[in-house]
Amino acid sequence: MKQARLVGLAVVAVVAFVLLISSLFTVRQTEQALILQFGNPVRVVQQPGLGFKLPFIQNVEFFERRILDLDPPTQEVLLVDQKRINVDAFARYRIVDPLRFKQRAVSDANFRLIFGGRLNSVVRTEVARSGLGDILSTERAQIMLRIKETMKAQAPEFGVEVIDVRIGRTDLPETTSQAVFNRMRSDRVAQAAQLRAEGEQQKATIQAEADRTRTVILADASRQAQINRGQGDAEKTRILNEAYGRDLFFFDFYRSLEAYSALSTPGSTMVLSPTSEFFRFFLGTQPDQGSVKR
């Protein structure tokens, strides 16, 4: 009898332990819990620690409290300037209402599918209003701000909070990239040709100006040289006239020396008598002062 009672108590203890274990659950600091009863949400537990539920009737589904990422597939967008680009956008969000999230999205995979589609739709709408230059300039920040505000307005419907939305990459499609590259290369070739033509024109202008300046400088130098040479000859003549006027014998002697120097000119021949008056200075005879004529 006593043994049967002990067995009964042991069974009760085991059942009580199993029930206790089945009714306890732990919520970590990075999690929040949603209590489901026969698949229907009944309450939310957001405080970390131990929690209680009805065993075998209720079950617990955990949701992240941390910031999560949403990275939908890259999409091709036609811009307002008729250029096509591949846009890769992503979002950061946090689940703030697990009950609403469960009711609206059912599962995390379904939420990513629905909300990711909405993100791509908003990105496509906003980006399509802009041109390629806007996407590559400071206007890009304003585009992302408008997308973020639109997504934040839609987030409470799913029990989430949108933290940030960004456009990661904006790449041109392969065909568009090649076309843009070819056009840019053509533009650069045309620009290079124009610069070369302008350079040749400037070169010709500079050379013409240099030649003109050179001609003017040479002409001025030649004119000044002629003036200086004429002034020198005039001064020479004046000095010689003064010297000749002072000594007529010296004048006669100097003119004879000039005549003598002509005899040493190559190719010249002169036949004179040794007793000629022309050689009087070599013969030691001197003309009378009165017979010397200027």
Rank of each mutant, 00 (worst) to 15 (best):
F56L: 15
D81S: 07
G49P: 00
R92P: 00
T176K: 06
R212C: 11
I95T: 01
F90G: 00
I21G: 08
F25C: 09
R196V: 10
A16W: 08
V122C: 04
Q178Y: 03
F52Q: 12
K203G: 04
Q201D: 08
K148A: 06
M184R: 03
D71I: 05
M270H: 11
R214V: 10
T237V: 15
R100D: 00
I57G: 07
R5P: 01
Q75L: 12
I95R: 00
E64Y: 07
D81E: 05
S264R: 04
Q103N: 05
R238M: 07
N120L: 15
T125W: 06
I67Q: 02
T125D: 13
F253N: 06
A197E: 07
F181S: 14
R124Y: 14
S261F: 09
S273M: 10
F181D: 11
S130M: 07
V42N: 03
E161S: 08
F25Y: 15
E242H: 13
D134V: 05
P156W: 05
E64A: 10
V180L: 10
R223A: 11
Y260R: 02
I114Q: 12
D252S: 09
R280A: 08
F25T: 03
D69Y: 00
S186Y: 13
R223M: 04
A190S: 08
E157W: 07
I239C: 03
F101Y: 08
M270N: 10
L119I: 07
S137I: 06
N120V: 06
R84N: 08
T215C: 06
Q178F: 03
F251M: 11
V106W: 12
V60G: 06
I147Q: 00
R28P: 02
L70W: 01
R238T: 09
G116Y: 02
N110Y: 10
Q194F: 06
T215Y: 08
A128L: 09
